[in-house]
Simulated assay, not measured.
Amino acid sequence: MSLTTAFISELVWAANQADHLTAFEKRRLLDRAVVTIREMREQVGIAASETEADPVIDLQTTAAGIERQTGDQMREALLDAANMIRTLRIILDETE
C-alpha cells in the first residue's frame, strides 16, 4: 500500500470516527490533506488557486475553525479531502 493510499484510508477512517477525535487530530489531518493536495496538484500541473472557489480553501477554513465544526461538517471535510487526493492519485497514475 502506498503512502497516498494509506493517507486516503486514514482520512476515511477519521471521517467515520470524527466524533471521537480531538480538535488537534482533526486539524492535523486537514492540514496534512491541504499540503498533500497542493503537492499533488503541482505534480499534475494544476496551477495554484487562492480564490474562494478552490475547495482547498474550504478545507483550510474548516481546519482554522475546527472548534466550531459539527461532526457532520468534519466528516464531509475529511471525505472531501480523501476524494480530492484519490482523484489526483488517479490522474498521476495515468500520466506515468
Rank of each mutant, 00 (worst) to 15 (best):
A6H: 05
T36F: 07
I57R: 09
A47Y: 02
G45M: 12
E67K: 13
T22Q: 10
A14M: 08
T5M: 04
M84S: 09
D19C: 05
G65H: 12
L78S: 09
A15I: 06
T51H: 12
I91D: 03
L29R: 03
P55W: 04
D93E: 10
N16M: 03
I66H: 07
Q69P: 01
R86V: 00
V34R: 09
L21N: 00
E76K: 11
A48Y: 03
R27L: 10
E94N: 08
I46F: 03
N83P: 00
F24G: 00
E94D: 12
T4F: 05
T70D: 04
A47C: 02
A77Q: 03
Q43A: 06
T95I: 11
D54S: 12
I57T: 15
T5L: 07
G65F: 13
T70Y: 10
G71T: 15
R27K: 15
E39M: 07
L29F: 11
T36S: 09
A6V: 10
T51E: 14
T22G: 14
T51I: 05
W13A: 04
L3I: 04
A33L: 03
A18T: 02
I46L: 13
R75P: 00
F7K: 08
R89G: 07
D72N: 14
Q69F: 11
A64K: 14
T51G: 07
V35Q: 11
R27V: 07
F7G: 01
M74A: 13
R75L: 08
T51S: 15
L88C: 01
A63Q: 11
V56Y: 02
M1H: 05
E50P: 01
R38W: 09
A48K: 13
T61H: 15
R32C: 00
R89Y: 06
I46C: 02
T36E: 13
A14G: 02
E94M: 12
R89D: 15
L59S: 07
M1I: 10
E67A: 11
D54G: 06
L29N: 00
D93C: 01
G71W: 06
T51R: 12
E42W: 06
L59M: 12
A15F: 11
K26S: 06
T61K: 14
A81E: 04
Q69K: 14
F7W: 05
E76L: 14
I85C: 10
P55A: 11
E10F: 13
A14Y: 01
T51Y: 08
A48F: 03
R89P: 00
D93L: 02
L79Y: 09
A53W: 04
E39K: 15
G71Y: 08
P55L: 09
W13Y: 14
I8V: 13
A64S: 14
W13M: 02
I57H: 07
I8H: 01
M74S: 10
T61S: 15
Q69T: 05
L92S: 08
I8Y: 00
I66D: 04
E96Q: 12
L59Y: 15
T22W: 13
D93K: 07
D31G: 04
T22P: 15
R27T: 07
Q60P: 00
I37S: 02
V44W: 05
